[in-house]
């Protein structure tokens, strides 16, 4: 870990100003991923701006019926918050399926959105990685890619986004609230993370100095029919090989509204609102529907050797999650 300057931010604008006016500044909140990366010498910030004293710790109701989650709300406080567990149960489940209690007690909502990939090449400064050092290459494509992507990959990068929380938020159509040197803006979660393309070093659409202030959840939380299914290599404390957040609204056996996102398959939570509209909404909540939907959603998926099994695992996980969501509360 390099030496760096440490600054405690007193207000948002000052923090944004500080970060946008010089190079190599990182914001820090929970630090569970950033400190980890600094210790591995993967990132080398010149200064850290500590956001923890800002007033972004609240979960509040929104006038339109949704909920605003302050960026500094910890993963634990979010998952166990009575409003979240009652109205957005798939979000609670997703968060509690990730990391460990100790990490969830520190990790924040904003920080979780900015988690970096767990690709072992990215994490190891001794080897090439286009995401860590653009232009050095991607040994993962022919190497240890068990946990890596099958969708939305590029020649430069096959990294996956490791978050569980983000998968549920994607399915919930969350909106990320951002402030920065050029003012405030709202970014749908679906657009917040990028695909690697030609610039795998850039994970999100945030620009220099921008700070996440909150995540808004819409009123629809799929409290009646939702599921979060995570498949991993051990029974706890492991990143997802495949995860699925599925929320359905079902009336008389037919789907009226749906939100379904996949984790562990791409550089971002994988969701297609268009396919949901076309292949889920208006369709009966049964296995045929799930089959048609998963086939379309996973169209174009490609394995790289070690992760070929995900091509088999992703469809069955999707089907399991949809089936669980559809039958939530029933005794099967």
């Amino acid at each position: 870990m390099n030496n760096f300057q440490y600054v405690r931010a007193a207000d948002l604008s000052g923090a944004a100003q500080f970060a946008s006016s010089r190079d190599g500044v990182s914001f820090i909140a929970g630090g569970t991923n950033l400190v980890d990366l600094m210790k591995y010498s993967v990132v080398h910030p010149t200064a850290l701006v500590d956001l923890n004293r800002l007033s972004l710790h609240e979960i509040t109701d929104r006038p339109e019926g949704g909920v605003r989650i302050g960026a500094l709300v910890t993963n634990s406080n979010l998952a166990y918050h009575p409003v979240i567990s009652a109205r957005y149960p798939m979000l609670s489940r997703a968060i509690l399926a990730g990391a460990s209690p100790q990490l969830r007690n520190k990790a924040t909502t904003g920080g979780n959105l900015l988690q970096r990939t767990r690709c072992v090449y990215f994490y190891d400064p001794a080897v090439p990685c286009n995401k860590r050092e653009p232009g050095t290459g991607c040994p993962a494509k022919e190497g240890a890619n068990r946990i890596l992507a099958i969708l939305g990959t590029s020649v430069q990068c096959i990294a996956t986004h490791p978050s569980d929380m983000c998968v549920a938020m994607a399915a919930l159509s969350a909106i990320v609230q951002v402030t920065g040197p050029s003012g405030d803006r709202s970014v749908p979660l679906a657009d917040f993370h990028r695909l690697p393309g030609e610039h795998p070093e850039i994970d999100t659409v945030l620009s220099k100095g921008e700070i996440i202030t909150a995540v808004d959840l819409p009123a629809t939380g799929f409290a009646g029919n939702s599921a979060y299914v995570k498949v991993r290599d051990r029974q706890s404390y492991a990143f997802a090989l495949i995860s699925v957040a599925a929320g359905l609204e079902i009336v008389d056996g037919f789907i009226t509204h749906a939100g379904v996102a996949l984790g562990g398959v791409a550089h971002k939570p994988w969701r297609s609102a268009e396919l949901e509209q076309r292949l889920l909404v208006g369709k009966p909540a049964n296995r045929n529907t799930w089959h048609d939907f998963q086939t379309a959603l996973l169209d174009g998926a490609q394995g790289f050797g070690e992760n070929d099994f995900k091509l088999k695992l992703a469809p069955v996980t999707l089907v399991r999650a949809l089936e669980q969501a559809a039958h939530e509360g029933e005794t099967i």
Binding site: V120, Y123, D124, G143, D233, R234, S236, Y237
Partner: peptide, 29 residues
Amino acid sequence: LQEEAVTDHQLGRIMNHNFAEYHTPVNAD
């Protein structure tokens, strides 16, 4: 069920050199 050091043979280097990727049983297992 879990333990395996994964070597990238191009590099000759074990790549899952940490507790997050080299799995040993946790309490829940």
